[in-house]
Design a protein around this nucleic acid. Sequence first.
DNA 1: CGAACCACCTGACGGC
DNA 2: TGCCGTCAGGTGGTTC
Length: 273
Amino acid sequence: MPELPEVEVIARGLHLTIKGRTIVSVHAVDMTRLSESADTLVPMVLNQRIARVYRRAKVLLIEMESGLTMAFHLKMTGRVVHGPLRDAERHDRIFFVLDDGSLLSFSDMRKFGYVRSFGAGELESWEFLKRCGPEPLETPSAALAERVKGRKARIKALLLDQSVVVGVGNIYADESLFRAGIHPETRAHRLSLPRLERLFTELQGVLRQAIAENGSSIRDYVNADGDAGAFQNSFNVYGKKGELCTVCKTVLTAEKVAGRTSTFCTKCQPKGR
DNA sequence: CGAACCACCTGACGGC
DNA sequence: TGCCGTCAGGTGGTTC
């Protein structure tokens, strides 16, 4: 489901609506494969007051005034939504009831997502985050280009590699490669430094635009208020195999690269360049 | 180091 | 209608 823009939109929305609220009760609806049992999570977060909500990589972080932090990874279909109290539904995982009577819910159809909690100061030692590369919107594109310069791997595989740069998934990898005019199978070492820089500049532009448009909703994504995003209406290539290129009207092609369906324009993104 | 698989899990959709 | 294969926004592990 969510790549960087979607998690960022959720985090910003939640920060506005739940900051300062206290968790008054927790309901474990379905904790199977959630990385943390209800027995340990519930007593830790109960009666904690929310200090801020933010994002690192594709992880949604809710930090309490005590320094305790809950980390949600939404994977493909996870949702974290704030709204009025309601009954549990099919894919709900955990409910957090807040002191104004509202509900913060975590649900996940495919159950790939998880929540973990960390005591004050423990987050930095989380292996997952330690393996993560820099934030694309807080790093100059020249510095990002340096990270892939000379690598023999396909450029798309490197964009998707969270140790190279975080937050990029299949949508924003395909969209930034299109904007930069680069074929997804191109080996990074075949690309000049200026072209790599251009790619990361385009990536930054796509991510910023997607955040401004409330993220991309393909099937499951909704923001913290339960609303869909709009950036899917601005896609040039993602999911558009067989449609015409918005620039040159060539029929868009799709093939597997780095194990993911990759859609591109053979004319705007010529092979071997 | 890089790539190709498989796995986790549920649902939607197309073909027959 | 229903069964079957394929695909889906992510990541982690194995094997070559």
